[in-house]
């Protein structure tokens, strides 16, 4: 007699554990989530000084999806190392893919208020065409997937919260500090531009900046940006599939 198992339930479990219950039982988490849009707004107001309002909004959209993975890395290593939740899940019918997907959704719940505010701002200040909207959403989707997958892979290598803090620091530099998200890459002095291209976020930002007409780049460069972004995403998924330590070696 085989039990019928619902993948929907398995996804819901992660969302409940990592976001809904956390916000419901710890009001501080909820307040934090509600306040998050304001910090984004401040960034946008500050960078908009020189007419960067539009790029500020789209930058914030990209940043929200990228930081989801950084947050996830910390959450997952906490659940794995301090709670041993992951051990219990590994020995259960939930697969690693379902676990990561559910946890990814849980991060989306945290960023929902920010996304909503940004979507409204984008509608008002960028009023993108359908094609532009699709490009922005696609880039956000890809950035979200690669950052979530990266966060998951790294978390499986941690055995202690200190290591996870180390990864958080590195990820923040590579994914959010180096890349020119709120401004064009030309603002970065020449030798350092190369550094920015280490970060997959840079390619995402370039695509979106060119989509809204903030920068103009050649079709070739745009194609390169897409190839790199999609390539990084696929590579990370493959790495996750092969190397993530779901079951310890």
């Amino acid at each position: 007699m085989v039990m019928k198992r619902s993948v929907g339930s398995q996804l819901l479990a992660s969302v409940l554990v990592n976001s809904i219950y956390a916000m419901k039982n710890y009001p501080v988490m909820f307040i934090n989530t509600l306040l998050a849009p304001f910090s984004i707004l401040i960034v946008i107001i500050l960078v908009s000084h020189g007419g960067l309002l539009q790029v500020g909004i789209e930058g914030a959209l990209i940043m929200t999806t990228i930081t989801a993975g950084i947050g996830l890395q910390a959450d997952l290593s906490h659940l794995k190392n301090d709670m041993k939740l992951q051990d219990m899940v590994v020995s259960s019918p939930t697969t690693s893919l379902t676990y990561v997907a559910g946890m990814g959704l849980s991060e989306l719940v945290f960023s929902a208020p920010v996304m909503a505010v940004l979507a409204v701002l984008a509608a008002i200040f960028i009023h993108p065409t359908l094609v532009q909207s699709l490009i922005i959403v696609a880039v956000m989707g890809i950035s979200f997937i690669f950052s979530i997958v990266l966060g998951f892979v790294l978390s499986t290598f941690t055995s202690d919260v200190l290591q996870s803090w180390g990864f958080t620091g590195i990820l923040s530099v590579v994914l959010t500090t180096l890349p020119p998200v709120y401004y064009p890459i030309s603002y970065i002095p020449q030798p350092f531009q190369i550094l920015a291209y280490i970060s997959p976020t840079t390619y995402a930002a370039e695509i979106v900046q060119s989509a809204i007409g903030f920068i103009s780049i050649s079709t070739f460069n745009l194609a390169v940006d897409w190839v790199v972004l999609v390539g990084v995403c696929i590579a990370l998924v493959v790495i996750a599939y092969k190397k993530a330590l779901w079951r310890e070696p």
Partner: peptide, 10 residues
């Protein structure tokens, strides 16, 4: 939540 991970309905 553990039972949801095992695939039970809510």
């Amino acid at each position: 939540s553990y039972l949801l991970y095992r695939g039970f309905g809510y």
